[in-house]
């Protein structure tokens, strides 16, 4: 049970003056239950890459396997794949169209051909999971606040019960509070239902605190792939391609330079706090 990307290349506007190679022979394996962050600059190919995972874009060359099956096979059911690999696009609130939030969330499961009761159950369940306030279920989705709209839109994808959930910049345009709420919600979803989550972002800070594995994209290729610790160890390389490591990593590097014996591979504020206190204790007992 996994997604395998095998030497996938993709070109936009082939044969015109605007031709761009967005992906250049990218190969990856995504295992069940992983929580992955894909990071890269605008135009690095990260959005293009994830759009291949549910067959929305068809690779110019190379192929994608889902559970061992080639998704470009003639008789492969792409519609079915899209319910298994759910995709939340950038600014997903722009896809809302129904008269009420509840009906909008029902759109996905309805397309799956489920009966009315099951559709309603799934919509209710999905809205609960994203923490959408019940009193707004019958409101027009266009009257909601930005953060609520986004929750409703994410619920619209969750209602299809995907086993892989891809979120493309789910926090773009939200304030810090809304951002943390959405990211916490995604994390708790991963912990509770063990679905595979792929988080696309350009913010290291967002990703470092949540994911188990980071894939860094640069110039249509995979640049780095590993745990946050492994990836942030390459802080110089990351800076060379214009990406920053989390603030705490910078702090730890600076402390190290000042002669403190700290572990520079910590990635979250919490870990950093413990590490600094530990180093402080060591230093204090040494000076005694």
């Amino acid at each position: 049970m996994s997604l395998i990307v095998d030497k996938v290349s993709y070109k936009y506007s082939t044969g015109t003056a605007y031709e761009v190679t967005a992906l250049d022979e990218v190969s990856l394996e995504i295992k069940d239950g992983e929580f992955i962050g894909i990071i890269g600059h605008t135009g690095s190919g990260k959005s293009t890459l994830v759009q291949h995972l549910n067959g929305i874009l068809k690779a110019t060359s190379g192929t994608v396997y889902y559970n061992g099956q080639d998704i470009y096979d003639k008789d492969y059911d792409l519609k079915d794949l899209r319910t298994r690999v759910g995709m939340v696009f950038q600014y997903p609130e722009h896809q809302l169209f129904e008269t009420t939030v509840f009906e909008d969330v029902e759109f996905g499961p309805k397309n799956q051909g489920l009966d009315e009761k099951e559709v309603a159950e799934r919509a209710y369940d999905a809205l609960q999971r994203v923490g959408f306030p019940e009193e707004y279920y019958d409101q027009s989705p266009f009257d909601l606040s930005g953060g609520q709209k986004r929750r409703a839109a994410i619920a619209g994808v969750l209602a299809m019960k995907p086993s892989v959930l891809i979120l493309d910049e789910p926090t773009a345009g939200l304030d810090p509070k809304g951002r943390n709420e959405i990211l916490d919600m995604i994390r708790s979803m991963h912990e509770k239902s063990h679905i595979t989550i792929i988080l696309v972002s350009h913010s290291m800070e967002d990703v470092a605190n949540y994911v188990d594995r980071i894939i860094v994209m640069n110039d249509a290729k995979v640049f780095l792939d590993g745990t946050p610790k492994e990836v942030f160890a390459h802080s110089k390389d990351l800076e060379a391609i214009g990406l920053a490591v989390p603030e705490v990593t910078y702090l730890m590097l600076e402390l190290k330079e000042m002669g403190w014996d700290v572990d520079t591979t910590v990635t979250t504020v919490e870990e950093a706090r413990k590490e600094i206190l530990r180093a402080y204790e060591v230093k204090k007992s040494a000076s005694k």
Binding site: Q51, K79, F89, P92, H94, Q95, F107
Partner: peptide, 26 residues
């Protein structure tokens, strides 16, 4: 938007005028 609705199982290639028109609403 088409991509986003396709990801939610929308089908823009259905046959029949009425169904086609309905599929355009999202």
């Amino acid at each position: 938007i088409m991509k986003a609705q396709m990801a939610r199982g929308a089908d823009f290639e259905t046959k029949g005028l009425v169904r086609k028109a309905k599929a355009m609403v999202p």
